[in-house]
Nucleic acid binder design. Structure first.
Lengths: 212, 212
DNA sequence: TGGTTCCTTCCGACCGGACGGTAGCATTAC
DNA sequence: GTAATGCTACCGTCCGGTCGGAAGGAACCA
């Protein structure tokens, strides 16, 4: 019974023109931004629709004009992030096919996306439970694609003899994904180390090991 | 203003004797077990006190006899897990002082505790936000001790020349902690690989690297 | 042995407030 | 007129927490 995405503004194909550069789409965006900040800080359940609207200097009425429900907004945020992830994966897969370059790129990309989409990532991992069952399944499926990309690259490296064969590609993948995903808990853009530098160190650790 | 732990049953020093092996402490435990299961599945906010009580075939009244509040129960669960963590850290620190053995032990221990305390771990990471500010600070402090243990061991390894010096110990720590912590999302006790085997592979990857 | 009192454990009815969502209306542009 | 946008007022529900009391053992006294 997967009903199509249909908020009132999404279904409005014939758009009205507004004067003075005003665009209702900005209203929508400001609601999303407001929600991103609040969900990240307080969590989905502890944030009321009222608060989201107020932070965007609007009212609940406006919110429900742009979104079907609170869940609908969450879904939108999750999908926004997943689309960015999948797009990046494809970019990497169309680049170098050297396993070690690919793994390093994947680490770098993962950390970069954590830095760029910090709120999205936090919400993505913490609030998946709040999605409806079928939506959760869909999100998990897409998330699986990202992990498969990791696993495929490692598997490929093993097959070509670049990586050691006594490590299960799935386990290595979980380790890599975990290392990178966890960064949303600590990665500090204002810290002394750049994202690229952190990525370099992660790559060094995983590829060459900690031994001197 | 750190008020001492004081639910009614904890403060009752002179215990009543009950016939037939009945012990009200079991009631308390069954409430905790019930909450662990529900919090893990649905999250703290989506679980009502009513549901917790009902799952233990009790009522809200009984719940509020054993716990001060819903938050009090969450605090109890968090502390239960942290105590176990800190105890294990001390055990490791009193063992071998070889950096590579210690790191391997720490990985093994982290994964084991994820397997053993699965619900606790899930709740710990997902529901920290729901603690009061000062309690959150306390939990974060204790959690910091665990991470310091990791960092100290790596630092020590670098100082002794066992580990490479171009990797920041803090970054390496975050990587290691992330790898292990993330396991709560996928580690499967019924899967083909034992926890020890997963730990071995993680250690191999981090210490020796993926290269063949 | 029976009576009284106290304490622990648990029940069930209830309260106040917050929250998601709805309905109707005003405004503005086409 | 019609459609999009946004506001105000309102509704029903659920939830954390409280309160008074019932059941029954323990402890003391006679």
């Amino acid at each position: 019974m997967a009903r199509a995405t249909s908020t009132r503004s999404e279904s409005s194909r014939r758009r009205q023109r507004w004067p003075d550069g005003y665009d209702p789409e900005n209203t929508r965006k400001s609601l999303i931004t407001s929600a991103l900040e609040l969900f990240e800080q307080r969590g989905f359940d502890r944030t009321s629709v009222q608060e989201i609207a107020e932070r965007a200097t609007l009212t609940k009425g406006a919110f429900y004009h742009h979104f079907e429900s609170k869940d609908d907004l969450l879904r939108h945020i999750q999908e926004e992030y997943l689309e960015a992830q999948l797009a990046a994966i494809q970019r990497i897969e169309s680049g170098s096919d050297d396993p070690k370059v690919r793994v390093a790129e994947l680490i770098r990309f993962s950390l970069t996306s954590v830095a760029e989409y910090r709120a999205h990532v936090t919400i993505f991992y913490q609030e998946r439970r709040n999605l409806t069952a079928d939506l959760f399944a869909e999100v998990t499926r897409k998330r699986g694609l990202v992990e498969s990309a990791f696993a495929g690259m490692i598997q490929d490296g093993i097959a070509r003899g670049v990586f050691r064969s006594d490590v299960d590609p799935r386990i290595a993948t979980f380790g890599l994904v975990g290392m990178c995903a966890w960064a949303y808990q600590w990665l500090n853009l204002d810290g002394p180390l750049s994202v690229d530098e952190v990525a370099r160190q992660f790559s060094a650790m995983v590829l060459e090991g900690l031994y001197a």
